[in-house]
Amino acid sequence: MIFISEIGLNYNGNIGLAYELIRQSKYSGADIVKFQLGWRAAKEDINHIDFDMLSNLKKWADFFEIELMFSIFNEEAYDLISMFSFSKYKIASRTLVDNFDLVKKIVDKGMDTYISLGMWTDSELPFVGYDNVHYLWCKSLYPTTPWDMLDLPKDFIHSQYSGYSDHSIGIDLPLLAIARGATIIEKHFTLDKSDTTIRDHALSATPEEYLCMTQIGKEIYKKMRLGI
């Protein structure tokens, strides 16, 4: 069972807040903490991550013993992250649609690659026969309401999806996905859901919520493995 704490842009361009979000993600039971590389990344923009900042994020994640992962949005982001040694990559469905050749290049590296399929409309999977590719079911609405989620897979075990990338308010839908066989959960993480700097704060989990989700989710997963 893998829990990905999606910080994304929720650090609000504040490097000190990024440190605290990594720390709290670890304390909240996340296995992986994730940022976005190449999205809103101009020098004056909120998510400008250069070599030095990326080095700090890696150092801090190593210190708190939590794995660091990035969503790769463009060639410049890929060139930057290639200067480091990462074992996993994330691909947003937007990148899959807008820059398929880049995604193919990343997948062909053979590293574990998690791909959200929220914006993918083709009936066929983008990559078949790759053991390193793990697909996440996703609804690309921010936030999703219960009425948007009526097509959440009823059985992840026998589906093409390994897990669920969540944009809902609360933690109940990630837990429902685990009960249906999802083994990877990606959930946005925040210290303040009322923060309006980035829209994602509202659909994120606080440390208390995230810890509750990981604790209950791991128990559900273990009981399912027993055959209950």
Rank of each mutant, 00 (worst) to 15 (best):
P126T: 05
N132A: 03
G110D: 02
L152D: 14
Y164A: 01
D122Y: 13
S123V: 11
Y114T: 12
D122I: 12
Y130F: 14
T183E: 09
G110P: 09
P143D: 06
S168Y: 00
H158D: 08
K154F: 10
H158L: 02
L173M: 10
Y161E: 01
D108L: 15
D172V: 00
A179L: 04
F156I: 03
L125T: 08
M149G: 01
M111C: 14
L117Q: 02
S162W: 06
G170C: 08
R180D: 11
M149Q: 12
K154R: 13
T113H: 00
Y114G: 06
H167F: 15
A177L: 07
G163S: 12
A179M: 11
G181W: 01
D112Y: 08
D148C: 06
H158K: 12
K139M: 09
K154P: 01
N132H: 12
F127N: 11
I157P: 00
L136P: 02
P126I: 02
H158A: 01
D148G: 07
S116W: 02
D122H: 11
I157R: 05
Y161N: 05
Y161Q: 07
F127G: 03
I157T: 03
A179N: 08
A182I: 06
I115M: 06
T113E: 02
S162F: 12
G110I: 10
A179C: 02
C138S: 15
P174F: 12
I115V: 12
S168K: 03
T121S: 06
K109N: 15
L152Y: 13
V128E: 06
I115L: 10
L152K: 14
T144C: 14
A177G: 03
I169Y: 00
D112Q: 11
P153W: 11
C138V: 00
Y142Q: 05
T145L: 14
I115F: 10
L176S: 14
G170Y: 01
L117A: 06
D122T: 08
L173T: 07
S159M: 01
K109G: 05
S165H: 11
D172R: 04
L176G: 02
K139C: 13
S159C: 12
Y135M: 03
E124Y: 14
C138G: 09
D172G: 00
C138L: 02
G110N: 06
G110Q: 09
W137M: 02
I178D: 02
E124H: 15
G170S: 03
S168N: 06
L152Q: 02
H134R: 14
D155S: 07
H134W: 07
S168A: 15
S165L: 14
A182E: 07
M119W: 07
L173H: 00
V128H: 13
S159W: 05
D151W: 06
T183V: 12
W137G: 00
D151L: 09
K154W: 12
Y164G: 05
Y164D: 03
T113K: 05
D131V: 01
G118K: 01
D155R: 05
T121R: 10
T145S: 13
P146C: 03
T183K: 12
D166I: 04
D112R: 09
S116P: 04
Y142L: 12
S162K: 04
S165F: 11
T121W: 08
D112I: 01
A182Q: 05
Y135P: 13
I171G: 08
S159G: 09
G170E: 04
L141Q: 04
E124L: 03
